[in-house]
Design a protein around this nucleic acid. Sequence first.
DNA 1: TGTTAGCACTCTAACCGAATGAGTGCTAAC
DNA 2: GTTAGCACTCATTCGGTTAGAGTGCTAACA
Lengths: 353, 353
Amino acid sequence: MELDERKREILYAIIENYQETGEPVGSRTISKLEKLKFSPATIRNEMADLEEMGLIVQPHTSAGRIPTDKGYRLYVDKMLAEQAKEPEKARDLPALPMQDLLSRRIDRVEEMLMKMAQILAANTNYTTMVTGPHSRKSKLKFLQLSPMDKGRILAVVVLSGDIVKNNILNLDEEIENSELMELNFILNKRLTGLSLEEINLSVIADLKNEAGTHMEVVSKVLDAVAETFSKEDSYPVYTSGAPNIFRYPELTGGDRASELISTLEEKKELGSAIGSLTSENGSKQDIQVYIGDEVPVDSMKDCSVVTATYSLGDGVQGKIGIIGPKRMNYQKVVETLKETMSHLDGIFLKTEE
Amino acid sequence: MELDERKREILYAIIENYQETGEPVGSRTISKLEKLKFSPATIRNEMADLEEMGLIVQPHTSAGRIPTDKGYRLYVDKMLAEQAKEPEKARDLPALPMQDLLSRRIDRVEEMLMKMAQILAANTNYTTMVTGPHSRKSKLKFLQLSPMDKGRILAVVVLSGDIVKNNILNLDEEIENSELMELNFILNKRLTGLSLEEINLSVIADLKNEAGTHMEVVSKVLDAVAETFSKEDSYPVYTSGAPNIFRYPELTGGDRASELISTLEEKKELGSAIGSLTSENGSKQDIQVYIGDEVPVDSMKDCSVVTATYSLGDGVQGKIGIIGPKRMNYQKVVETLKETMSHLDGIFLKTEE
DNA sequence: TGTTAGCACTCTAACCGAATGAGTGCTAAC
DNA sequence: GTTAGCACTCATTCGGTTAGAGTGCTAACA
């Protein structure tokens, strides 16, 4: 069966109508469109063909049609291809209120990402999800030991990509301030610039040798460093706009709402599932669309997810995902994400200067 | 109308039955109880009285009765009073899996609080909520400036109660390492031990005087300190177990679920509402129960909230709240919270040593 | 050969009325 | 003071009917 131009028009018309209403769309509705002034009977014939091709289905015998995953896929691929062709269409989307983010001093990247998730959620009416910055090859930038109270020190660990973690260490022994300074110096000299793999036994042995009596401190600091690295490995995830799923009845029927909200709350599973999605094609914009069953999270098989990868330079990167019903407005979501990514690039480039 | 012993027994029986089933309870059900072996007719007479007293209502004419807020209030007050009398009843609650928390090195208080919220939620099947540690009179413990890259420094601000915040500062000028160290020293000398109010213009003037050329750095650091203090003022809030509300149909009918989830996601409002709840009576355990309309959050008027205050010493404290339907198991919740608080005290005392 | 009108058919959603049953309030007897 | 009995109320359930949306098919039309 051939998918000629008219069939494609009808398919798109069905998809777009269904996006707006959420109701199965019938032949009469389509035949009223400017573009497709045929009688309902003609449309019906075409629809029967589209159904045979697996692009649309009827929920029950006497209902209108709704798109299948395959139908959406066709639609999305076409749209992405067209967007790639006309690179800057300068569509008049309502500008995202990103100025706030830009003007504010960004002291912590993660805070900004959370804020961004909120803005995206409010703007799209879908749920958003951001994985924290992450790098398989992140390196230790430096660390800083400071005395706190008797027997307690603060160890600040800074990884490449401005990932900063605090650790309060309880020591059994006490340590002089000057000794701590020296330890600080030694540790930085030995460890700065190394990745987790590079901090091996020989480095550690050297360190303990040099540290002399304060081996306990060294090993606790090393533990803290290791934990910081490994925490980096388990993608932290922020979500926003979870309640937006209630806008879409097809996502909230039965226990679905509960399951979805649970998944969003158990961010860990979510993070590793989404985080592990590799961008298959090395497109520069790096936007991926997962429709229905393509989503690698069970409770989201009725959803679509659009992801984009942001990069902080130095190999540190993370993902932004937008989760909505399969009938989400892919066009708007993809464009909003693209805009967001260029904003982000602007911010990070500015920071990098 | 007098509330005699038998009426009270019946009220409690209604409450406890309704807790289990969530269905209005009728006279037959009550009359089958060991304790209340009267005919349904007798029970009905008593129920009519209880209804007249405003302690129970029927949802519709031919239905059983459910407790009113006033009824719950009576029940809860009695229970709390009895618990106060017999201080350590050593009820055989399934021990909370707090050992994990105890044995793990706690490097960040907030992480532990989040974990605790999760455990509580899983254990009670209600939603939990924790406000981060907070103090109106917290003081600057110390701060630590470290060089990062050209023109960027890391300022770690530590407040009393081990509240640690990182700030990455972008400088217009560059600064030598040794100069930074000196600034670090000066800032600490002048600021350590001061509260937000105590860092006034005269202190700042002195500082800028002493700092000489590096006024920009000083003022940016001061900004960071101010922000850390003020962030402290806007209670951070963690929630867990939000999906548990789906277990209780009376909370999920209509748009209620959506509203509740939204409230939980917008943690700020929640935080200030809950955080501002003062403990009216200075009871040592400091457990408060808010029933229905007593809850100061609009979307939670169908819920009850039980809160407890934890304290990290030094005036730093926060609140733990358990949110559930009005028919929640107050007994279990209060006991679980008490147990949790004593665990917490154990942990913090240990840390304080 | 593509398009359209007409028609029988299907299925859902909404509505209706009767039956069911849980539970009540009241009265009168114990 | 307690209880048995009874009439009554009301939510829920179920079957049956209807209305409406939409389809598929056939036959006529251009």
